[in-house]
Design a protein around this nucleic acid. Structure first.
Lengths: 204, 204
DNA sequence: CCGGTTACCGACCGGGCGGTCGGTTCAACG
DNA sequence: CGTTGAACCGACCGCCCGGTCGGTAACCGG
C-alpha cells in the first residue's frame, strides 16, 4: 500500500503536468518527452506506468477532466432551486477562473473535442460522453424548473441545454484572443436576455 | 499570361485540396505529402509555388476562407432590412451546408482558431482578423436595426454580436457528434427566443 | 534548331517522436 | 547481508515530416 502510494503520486504528477501541456499545446503537438522534461523523469518511468500516449490521455480525461467538469459545472446546478439563476452563476464562475488562465474544464472539453474530431474516434467518445452528462444534467434542471415555475412550460429543454452549452463553448473560443473580462461580462449579460425569454411572464 | 494561368491553376488545386485535408485532419496532423499525394504532385511542385507550409496555409486563409466567410456570413446580412431575421436565415443556411458535410466556413474558422491558439501567433492573427470583420458587420447591422425599429435600443450591440458568434461556433462544435439536423433545428429555435428578447416589445 | 524559362520530379537530409529494452538504484524483507 | 522487485534511467530503433536540391521534360521566342 505504501508502494502503491508512491506509484499513484508519480502517475498523478504525470497526469497533471500532461493535462497542462496538452491543453496549452495540443495533444498531437505535445511530445511525451515534453511532459517528462518538466518533471525530470524519463521515458522508462512513463512506459512503466502507462501503456501508450493514448491510454495516458484517456486516464487524464477520466481522472481529471471528468471530475472537474462534474464539480465545476454539474454539481453547482444540481441542488439549486432556480435553474436559470444557478446556471448563470455557474457559468460566470467558470469564466472567471478562465480569466486567470486557470483551466476551466468546460473549455478543455470543447478544445479537445475539436482536436480529436475525426482523428481519434475512441478519445472522441470519451469526451462526448462527458458533454452528454453535462447536457442531461442541464435538461433535468430545466425540467424541474418548469414544475417549480421558474421556466416557461412550452420551451424545449433539450434545445435550450444545447444552446447554453454551445454559447459557453463558443465564448471560450472567442476569449482566447484577449479582452476576457469584457467578453465575460457581455456574455453573461446576453445570457440573461436569453434566460428572460425562457422565464414565465411575470406581472410586475 | 498563359503560363500564369497554369501556375494559378496548380496553386488553386493545391489550396483547395489543402483546405479540405487541413480541415478534416488538422493542420499539424496533415503532411504536405498527404496533400500532394491526392493531386499526384511532388514536393518539388509544392516548394516551387509556396515558400513553406505556413505560407501555404496563410494563402489558403486569405484566398479561400476569408472570401467564403464574406460571401456566406457577411454579405447576406448587409443589405437586409431586418437584421435579426437576416442573421437567423444566414446562420440557418450555413448550418444547412454543414449538414451535407460541405465546408461551412464559419466553423472552419473556429476550428483553426482553436488549433493555432497559443501555437502559432501569426496564423492566429489572420484568423481573428476575419472573425473581427464578421463581428463588426453584425454590430453594424444591429445598430442599423435600432434606428429602424427592429432592435431594442438599450441592448449592447457588441455583446449581442459576440453572443451570436459564440453560439454559432459552439453549436458547430456539438454538431461534430451526429444528429446535425435536430441540433440545427433546436439551435435556430432557441436563437429565435433570444432574438425575441432583443426586439422592441410589440403590442399584439 | 537553340537557349532559356517554367513547372515539376523525387532522392535525400536532419530532426523529432512514439515506443522498446537492457540495465541500475534502493527500500523492504527474510 | 543477500535477494528481490518496484521504480526509474536513457540509449536506441523505425518512422514520419518539413524542407532542400540537382536534375529534366515541355514549351516558346528568336
Amino acid at each position: 500500500m505504501d508502494k502503491n502510494l508512491k506509484r499513484m503520486a508519480t502517475m498523478n504528477r504525470m497526469q497533471k503536468s500532461g493535462l497542462d501541456l496538452f491543453y496549452a499545446q495540443g495533444y498531437y503537438n505535445t511530445s511525451i518527452d515534453d511532459i517528462l522534461k518538466s518533471l525530470n523523469l524519463s521515458k522508462g518511468a512513463f512506459y512503466y506506468h502507462f501503456q501508450s500516449k493514448e491510454e495516458f490521455f484517456i486516464s487524464i480525461v477520466q481522472n481529471l477532466v471528468f471530475r472537474k467538469v462534474y464539480s465545476m459545472l454539474i454539481e453547482p446546478i444540481e441542488g439549486e432551486e432556480n435553474p436559470l439563476r444557478a446556471i448563470e452563476i455557474c457559468l460566470d464562475d467558470a469564466l472567471k477562473t478562465a480569466e486567470f488562465n486557470d483551466l476551466d474544464y468546460g473549455f478543455v472539453l470543447s478544445n479537445f473535442l475539436n482536436e480529436f474530431n475525426g482523428r481519434n474516434e475512441k478519445i472522441t467518445r470519451y469526451l462526448t460522453d462527458i458533454v452528454k452528462v453535462w447536457e442531461v444534467n442541464i435538461v433535468t434542471a430545466l425540467q424541474r424548473g418548469k414544475t417549480d415555475g421558474f421556466v416557461e412550460r412550452h420551451i424545449d429543454s433539450e434545445g435550450a441545454a444545447a444552446f447554453i452549452i454551445s454559447g459557453y463553448f463558443g465564448i471560450r473560443s472567442l476569449m482566447v484572443t484577449g479582452n476576457c473580462k469584457m467578453l465575460r461580462y457581455n456574455y453573461i449579460q446576453q445570457l440573461r436576455y436569453y434566460f428572460r425569454s425562457l422565464s414565465p411572464v411575470v406581472l410586475a
